[in-house]
Design a protein around this nucleic acid. Structure first.
Lengths: 254, 254
DNA sequence: CGTCGGGTGTGCGATTGCGCACGGATAAGT
DNA sequence: ACTTATCCGTGCGCAATCGCACACCCGACG
């Protein structure tokens, strides 16, 4: 992790962006910009966190590690979320590991500062609590999808969720790592990804995956992606869904 | 649902019990006792709730229903929990169904009253938030267990969690319903339950399951039960783990 | 006392995913 | 340019689970 001297505001976090100007003005001086590289661990199971993080471009995975070594992702937070719910929920620590899944930056806030703001009980508190509920939905849906849907369905869901947080269409990620996230075998991911590539939905080469046909992916995906996205919309509004195809059409028309 | 005239306080809810006397005194007049029968639905996906419920003897399942009709339980709340997190988290509705899994009573509180109390920001708010975190842990662990552990392991976990909320050792529940909770086949449950019965852990007949050897169940269960129970302990303390065997030993010694 | 329906036991083939193992291909380092 | 590590493709046998079908059993109800 690198602490940035210059506070580049060109990109921000959706939760912070959604705050009214006067609230954001109060909070802004408390923020500090940091940059993470791929694979970094923000905290381990049981670690006490000193800061709450609001990703601006970094994508963080919340991973569960079982006693037998198996892993599974329970949730993702990108520029539409935050890391450190346990700090305001009161538990201080969580039983999961937070890993950088895609390098980038975040702004952070000292735990004490955040708690003071939270105690004011205004829109900031409200936003954090609503985000918690959207996270509960995400975790639930992920769990149910694990149980009832095929690896291919889950891979689609996972790609779509990640795509929403990405600046472009390309994700740096090996099949092996995706398998760890989904809690399945690497070969299972290879096979599912192979199918998606053969049918023109994605393209991948040695550790990168590129989305080619997002609307197509949405079509062959189970409902799980949409349910979570819609619930986030409802709870937090302002959700910027990826609509590259729409954007392209608009650009072409212009 | 039946609204009770007499407020029988002989049994209470652990979360409410844990409040300091002065706080509880303020809250008590706002409570109303209600009784539920097996299978009743407290709310459907998307329903707006008017009350928050604190179970005293009833056990409630939170179920997800997929488009293809498949179901899976994401969490349970008994006398150590509450139903209606969405009310204080701000979303008002949830994308799950709350079903009575074991008949019994609860006390409830009007949503507005609860919100006012919550806004005071004291121990009541703290308790509710900590409970949310414990619920997040439960949901996560359930999801991961779904993915990585066998049906038999999951059945053990599920039985233990339910046993913790039961007044006795007998649960009224068919294999078919358990299958719906776990998101697996009825036959799978029959097989796993058969194994548990053959080895003296449980006994069952036509819609009832009785725990015979709880410590044994804990031994052959995956870690998932313990992780959730420990986290609840840490967050909310005062968790009354079922220790029938210990109690019996104590009684025998007396 | 007989019927009926829900709950449980069980068997079978199909499918999915797992574990392992190896081979080829590509990037990265020396 | 050569080695090495990493990533991906693929095949095989195995285990778990699924989907379905049917038989049995018990209790409820008429």
């Amino acid at each position: 992790m690198k602490i940035n001297n210059t506070n580049d505001d060109s990109m921000l976090n959706h939760l912070l962006e959604s705050l009214p100007p006067e609230d954001f003005a109060r909070i802004k001086p408390l923020l500090e910009s940091v940059t993470f590289s791929l694979g970094e661990v923000l905290y381990e199971t049981g670690d006490k966190m000193s800061h709450i993080y609001f990703p601006t471009s970094v994508i963080i995975s919340l991973l569960y590690i079982m006693e037998n070594g198996g892993t599974a992702e329970i949730g993702i937070a990108g520029n539409n979320g935050l890391i450190g719910m346990a700090l305001y929920l009161g538990g201080e620590t969580t039983s999961s590991r937070a890993v950088v899944q895609s390098a980038g930056s975040a702004v952070r806030m000292k735990a004490e500062d955040m708690k003071k703001e939270f105690q004011l009980g205004g829109i900031f508190q409200n936003t954090l609590l609503r985000y918690s509920q959207s996270m509960i939905t995400q975790i639930s849906q992920t769990g149910v999808c694990n149980r009832l849907h095929s690896v291919q369905n889950q891979l689609c869901r996972w790609l779509l969720i990640n795509h929403d947080q990405l600046p472009g269409d390309t994700l740096v990620m090996t099949h092996d790592l995706i398998a760890n996230m989904l809690g399945v075998r690497r070969e299972g991911v290879t096979q599912a990804a192979g199918f998606l590539q053969d049918n023109g939905y994605i393209k991948y080469v040695r550790g990168t995956v590129t989305m080619l046909d997002r609307p197509g992916l949405e079509k062959i995906c189970c409902e799980c992606y949409q349910v979570v996205a819609d619930e986030y919309d409802r709870l937090l509004g302002k959700f910027v869904r990826k609509n590259k195809h729409v954007k392209k059409a608009v650009l072409a028309a212009a």
